[in-house]
Amino acid sequence: MSTDAVLFAVIAGAICVSALMVVVTRDIVRSAVWLLFTLIGVSTLYFLLGAEFVGATQLIVYVGGTMVLVVFGVMLTAQRQFLKIKTAGPEWVMGGILALALFAVLVNVSLSLGQKHPAPAVATLPSAGPLGMAFLSKYVLPFEIVSVHLLVVLIGAAYLARAKRRPKDGQP
């Protein structure tokens, strides 16, 4: 077994354990922390495969952005401290069926791929330079659409969050 395969096994195992803990943990902030570990694990997997840019993007977008949102959301919306999630019986059944179905599909797909573990990275994959050039040449239309979309979201958020002005004459 090569070093890459061993490292992959270690990282993938850590990701699986932390992903399981996300759903097993009852405490919502603890499960957010486990999600943080899962996302960091996925980014290390990208680094292992030689996709440095994707790995760093995973760190800055998901680990940085999403986790701040999760923690903020949980901390500012929970009614009392250390909110616990209670799962009822039917939810267990439905969730279990869905999880089993998804697991079966994933196992089926990965077995049909025919390669037992990813081939070790020969050289680092295209980094920021080629990706940026591709965005501005071949994929310029999707790139622009996404950019305008994000701008609209940004303006919308600023509009919703702005201070409400009162009319000057005292009328509501």
Binding site: V29, V33, L36, E52, F53, G55, A56, T57, L59, I60, V63, G64, M67, V68, V71, M75, Q81, F82, T124, S127, A128
Partner: peptide, 28 residues
């Protein structure tokens, strides 16, 4: 020797706040 060193540096340095946020939350 990361090809995207500057980007990586920004990404990990901004994750330091998690420790701070968690410390703030978990202290009760």
């Amino acid at each position: 020797p990361l090809g995207v060193g500057a980007f990586f540096l920004l990404a990990v340095l901004s994750s330091e706040i998690f420790g701070v946020i968690l410390a703030g939350y978990a202290s009760g």
